[in-house]
Design a protein around this nucleic acid. Structure first.
Length: 594
RNA sequence: GGGGGUGUAGCUCAGUUGGUUAGAGCGAUCGCCUGUCACGCGAUAGGUCGAGGGUUCGAGUCCCUUCACUCCCGCCA
């Protein structure tokens, strides 16, 4: 028999009545009646109420013991009387009469309460993460994360994928995010980089003939944090498949996501077949490439309306003439909304740095007319056209934004979220997945005006490979795709370019000659030159998936030991200084701070 | 790198127009209490009001600088 416990803290029921048992766990809560003491004993599995009274020689010692100390209790299971049953506890029909106890791990005075639903400052939670993790909500989140990862592993194996590990110490790559660098002792002056993703390795796995690969892969990017982005490291379900087209990848991921989300959440999926939306369309209709499809509002382009003679809205007309676009959002049946509703959204837009949102409501007496501060500028005819383009009806309202393309996309996208939130249009009980497809291969850098890769340089361009018009690179689309759920970008993926000649050609467009490509991606190109299969894949973010399933808005709520916003681990005190000897071994000198 | 928010007891927070000795709940310590499950009752301890400077007869409160945490922008193929 195990010396610490015969049962865990959720197991005992009426069936164990009169048994002598041993429990070990943390003291969750004490209720001291002076001559009678209740102790809620907690472990990973649950809580059991234990009782002791003054007649027991251990009473005084137990009365004084700190909360969150770890103790072992020898006791007898007794059935509770009807009035004292606690239906909130799985073990609420019984309690344990303490015979003796032993302290296994003493707890000092707590810097933060463990038994409490209160929110605490992030700083103290991270410093005492081991205490924070004892708390119910986050404890359950971490267990969920473990179960999700197991489920994914099983499902991927079931689907015929093999799990491999790829190197953690690898080489820095010139594209993408900032690298974490690790100095090499044996090669002075040279550095490893931690992988931003196992991108090149997984392609090499395909070239090596393994057909289907996956990995719960740690990824390292030295970029600034956000609520949904850990600084430093995060995990992807990295996967890659040979001899596939885009739809084959989609099929695998849809199967996985549907079973995963059905299994771990009671929320319903809005679409069982995830909609495919082209990049071009998503930017027009949603203003972003990570649209929240739970939000029914759509954006429409009505720029042309402002070239008409019978529209007198001169501010917009002038802006349109100089290249600005006008985008609108229709809100249904909002004609009775108070003026303040519209003005507040206009004010909100201005606070974000936009020039504001014009608005009017469509009404009908004898004629169709627009009501609102700018309504008078629109003729009946122009309103009919607007209604045609936007599917607006009498009684609906329109918000109008007029900015340069990038800005109008941005503000209309934010306004879409804001207005839906104000009108309570988001159905929180749903998951809405979609694929964003047909990304452009290249884009123009706004600062340098040079053509650059818009996403992954290793993606396969669309169309007949032999007849691609490289003179118009901005027209080339790629087999590049994103999967999005509830406005959260879960991952990017692509069908890869496995043809070295085509790779050189595409790199030449962004200004790399053959030698430079060989130097930067020699390993990759070389491998592709020895018989590479067509292949493609994707890498959904594990942390974000768990966030969605747990209903959390912050990635640290589903990460066991996260770093803070400044990429510091407050518990382990990382990063930290190293000794002179260590620096010397690595051939490093530190610049003296001023 | 830039913008917003926050910072008062171990924890969560209140603190009016600048005005006497900075408060509450939880926690801690001590005492009372045999059926609680957020047990109850009483007492005690606990404060560089994030730090530094300034204005003022007087600063938790006003001004300046700075630090920490957090959210956002940039960044994240």
């Amino acid at each position: 028999m195990n010396k610490y416990r015969t049962h865990n803290c959720t197991e005992l029921t009426k069936k164990n009545k009169n048994q002598e048992i041993i429990l070990s766990g943390w003291i969750n809560k004490k209720r001291d009646h002076g001559n009678l003491l209740f102790i809620d004993l907690r472990d990973n599995y649950g809580v059991t109420q234990c009782v002791i009274d003054k007649s027991n020689k251990f009473f005084n010692e137990l009365e004084k013991i700190q909360l969150e100390s770890v103790i072992k209790i020898n006791g007898k299971v007794v059935e509770r009387s009807k009035e004292t049953i606690n239906s909130d506890l799985k073990t609420g029909e019984i309690e344990v009469n303490i015979i003796s106890f032993e302290t296994l791990g003493h707890c000092m005075e707590l810097p933060m309460p463990v038994f409490s639903d209160q929110d605490y400052a992030e700083e103290i939670r991270l410093k005492y993460r081991f205490l924070d993790l004892r708390r119910k909500k986050i404890h359950e989140n971490i267990i969920l994360r473990s179960k999700v990862i197991s489920f994914i592993r099983n499902k991927m194996s079931e689907l015929g994928f093999l799990e491999f590990q790829t190197p953690i110490l690898t080489s820095s790559s010139p594209e993408g995010a900032r690298d974490f660098l690790v100095p090499s002792r044996l090669n002075p002056g040279k550095f490893y980089a931690l992988p931003q993703a196992p991108q090149q390795f997984k392609q090499l796995v395909m070239v090596s003939g393994f057909d289907k690969y996956f990995q719960i892969a740690p990824c390292f990017r030295d970029e600034d944090a956000r609520a949904d982005r850990s600084p430093g490291e995060f995990y992807q379900l990295d996967l890659e498949m040979s001899f596939v087209e885009q739809e084959d990848v989609f099929n695998v991921v849809e199967k996985l996501m549907i079973s995963l989300f059905k299994n771990f959440s009671s929320k319903k999926l809005l679409h069982e077949k995830f909609p495919r939306i082209s990049y071009e369309k998503v930017m027009l209709k949603y203003g972003t490439d990570k649209p929240d499809l739970r939000n029914p509002l759509l954006i429409n382009d009505i720029t042309n309306i402002f070239t008409r003679e019978d529209v007198k809205f001169d501010i917009f007309k002038k802006l349109v003439k100089s290249g600005s676009k006008v985008r609108s959002i229709v809100t249904k049946k909002t004609k009775n909304k108070p003026r303040s509703f519209f003005d507040n959204i206009d004010k909100w837009a201005k606070e974000l740095g936009a020039s504001g949102l014009a608005y009017f409501t469509i009404e009908k007496d004898q004629k169709i007319s627009a009501k609102g501060p700018v309504g008078k500028f629109f003729s009946e005819d122009s309103l009919m056209d607007i209604m045609k383009i936007t599917n607006a009806e009498v009684g609906d309202s329109l918000f109008l934004a007029c900015e340069k393309l990038k800005e109008v996309e941005k503000i209309s996208s934010l306004a879409r979220d804001k207005i839906a939130y104000e009108l309570n249009l988001i159905d929180e009980s749903k998951f809405a997945f979609c694929w964003i497809v047909d990304y452009p291969m290249f884009e123009k850098d706004e600062v340098t005006n040079k053509v650059k890769f818009s996403h992954n340089p290793f993606s396969m361009p669309q169309g007949d490979i032999k007849n691609i018009d490289f003179k118009k690179p901005l027209n080339i689309k790629a087999y590049q795709y994103d999967i999005v759920c509830n406005g959260v970008e879960l991952s990017s993926g692509a069908i890869r370019n496995h043809i070295p000649e085509l790779m050189y050609k595409l790199f030449s467009i962004v200004g790399y000659d053959k030698n430079q490509v060989d130097e930067k991606f020699g390993g990759m190109i070389n491998a592709l030159s020895y018989g590479a299969p067509p292949h493609g894949g994707i890498a959904p973010g594990i942390d974000r998936i768990v966030m969605l399933l747990a209903g959390e808005k912050n990635i640290r709520e589903v990460t066991m030991f996260p770093m803070n916003q400044n990429a510091q681990d407050l518990m382990m005190n990382a990063p930290s200084k190293v000794s002179e000897e260590q620096l010397k071994e690595l051939n490093l000198d530190l610049k003296k701070k001023k």
